[in-house]
């Protein structure tokens, strides 16, 4: 009995490890909302890779846009930065506040594409 039990336990441990590590590294579950102080809602559900696959998005700058002097830079992308690096909690001259930026980025596109969640509770699931 011993051997098979040991193999089985080992298999389960490895499986779980792989599963967890793959998930945590490869695809996120929710948007990181740690920048917000006392957020009112749970952070938005968002599986990055799955989303892009479903939405057929190849170009990172679709979402990770880059602006300079108020002009969007073609093909410039900002996936190496945090959204909050540019979008502060409060809006400044031309840069929307972080919350609004998220909402406009996600919901705005969903409405244009008529795909994906648009009401509060569809993303901010309890």
């Amino acid at each position: 009995m011993n051997k098979s039990v040991v193999y089985m336990i080992a298999f389960v441990i490895i499986f779980v490890f792989v599963l967890v590590s793959v998930h945590s590294q490869e695809d996120m579950e929710r948007v990181d909302n740690s920048v917000f102080k006392n957020p009112e809602r749970p952070s938005a559900l968002f599986r990055h890779d799955e989303h892009n696959e479903n939405a057929d998005i190849e170009n990172c700058s679709e979402c990770h846009h880059l602006y300079e002097d108020g002009q969007m830079i073609e093909d410039g992308s900002s996936e190496d930065q945090h959204c909050s690096d540019c979008h502060a909690l409060k809006a400044s001259d031309s840069i929307p506040a972080l919350r609004k930026a998220f909402h406009m980025n996600c919901k705005g596109c969903h409405l244009e594409q008529k795909q994906g969640p648009v009401t509060c509770g569809e993303c901010h699931k309890k």
């Binding site: 009401t119 509060c120 509770g121 569809e122 699931k125 309890k126």
Partner: peptide
Amino acid sequence: LAYHQWFAYEFFM
């Protein structure tokens, strides 16, 4: 009901 997302969320929304 929609805020608490009990029952059919989208319907109540």
